[in-house]
């Protein structure tokens, strides 16, 4: 296919063909990551700027490594959360980056829509590394990539996403991505965290996890932000864990050898029991590699050729 996209902002507006093309490219990138010499000359002289308004060592490092393997130079701008409101606005920062002649900007920001906001201003490509509660497309793509490695073609498979769906960009992006790949998605969690307005994602919703588990090929637990309890969204970790925590016993209800995924970091003993978490740990190493491969694929697709050249 001919790649035409300038930015990676959300899965919602991507075509299935684009998603498959990204996954195909990531497969090639993963082979390169397995080599003894993980360095390509592909993007020599290109510059990738990591602009992170939220701390996330994992995601930032993954993007950095992806850029470096492809031969690009990387710069990280970490903006302390406290200075967001009083300091330079995102608009001003964007103008500065523009002047630095970056080729790709990776943005992590606490406000939903900030990635599109930045992309609308900037000539360089923008990759959304998480914007507020809106989207985290690279996480969804790496999740899908990992699922495909385990299950092959995903069409017709069943995925349950359990937890704080309301506040989760990972859940939103995964719901879009999985649906586009023909997966049956069910969101599960208490009514306060899986409220009626999530119907807009077009997937199944339930407040009874146990009824959603039979037949599930994959169960994805979301990280529970412990401060939600203080906001009154659920009464206690004990009750949450009792109703929605993934345990070995509960997972038997799927009736299959289901895969458990977690975007991390995990609250052991809350959304996921220790023994289930150990199984997930085994996958984490693979997820990290897949994350770098997906991000290499995206950076390559965005700036690997010069799509802007007009003959």
């Amino acid at each position: 296919m001919k790649w035409q996209r300038k930015d990676i902002l959300a899965i919602e507006d991507m075509s299935v063909e684009e998603i498959r093309h990204i996954l195909h490219t990531a497969k090639v990138m993963k082979e390169i990551l397995m080599r003894p010499i993980k360095k390509l000359p592909t993007l020599k002289g290109k510059s990738v700027v990591n602009l992170f308004y939220e701390a996330s060592t994992r995601t930032r490092t993954s993007f950095e490594m992806a850029a470096k393997v492809l031969g690009a130079d990387t710069t990280s701008i970490a903006v302390a959360q406290s200075s967001v409101s009083k300091g330079e606005s995102l608009y001003d920062t964007a103008k500065t980056i523009q002047a630095m002649r970056a080729d790709v900007v990776i943005l992590r920001h606490p406000s939903s829509g900030s990635a599109k906001f930045l992309a609308d201003i900037l000539d360089p490509a923008v990759i959304n590394a998480g914007d507020g509660q809106h989207a985290h497309p690279t996480q969804a793509l790496l999740d899908i990539f990992t699922m495909q490695e385990h299950l092959g073609e995903l069409e017709g498979k069943n995925v349950v996403i359990v937890g704080d769906v309301l506040h989760s960009r990972v859940a939103r992006s995964n719901a879009w991505c999985l649906q586009k790949m023909g997966v049956n998605v069910t969101l599960a969690g208490p009514p306060t965290l899986v409220p009626a307005e999530m119907e807009g994602l077009g997937v199944n919703m339930t407040h009874d996890l146990d009824s959603a588990l039979p037949g599930a090929d994959i169960v994805m637990a979301l990280r529970l932000q412990l401060e939600r309890q203080k906001s009154g969204l659920f009464p206690s970790l004990r009750e949450y864990s009792h109703l929605y925590g993934l345990t070995t016993e509960r997972l038997k209800k799927t009736g299959k050898q289901s895969i458990v995924l977690h975007p991390g970091p995990m609250n052991r003993g809350v959304e996921i029991s220790d023994d289930v978490a150990n199984g997930v740990d085994a996958l984490i190493e693979r997820q990290v590699t897949n994350g770098v491969a997906i991000r290499m694929a995206l950076i390559y697709l965005l700036i690997g050729g010069s799509g802007n050249v007009v003959a």
Binding site: E12, S112, H134, R169, G200, L201
Partner: peptide
């Protein structure tokens, strides 16, 4: 940030 509903849920705006 906007009316609570399907649109806010979809976009992740509070």
């Amino acid at each position: 940030q906007m009316r609570r509903g399907v649109a806010s849920g979809r976009m992740g705006l509070r």
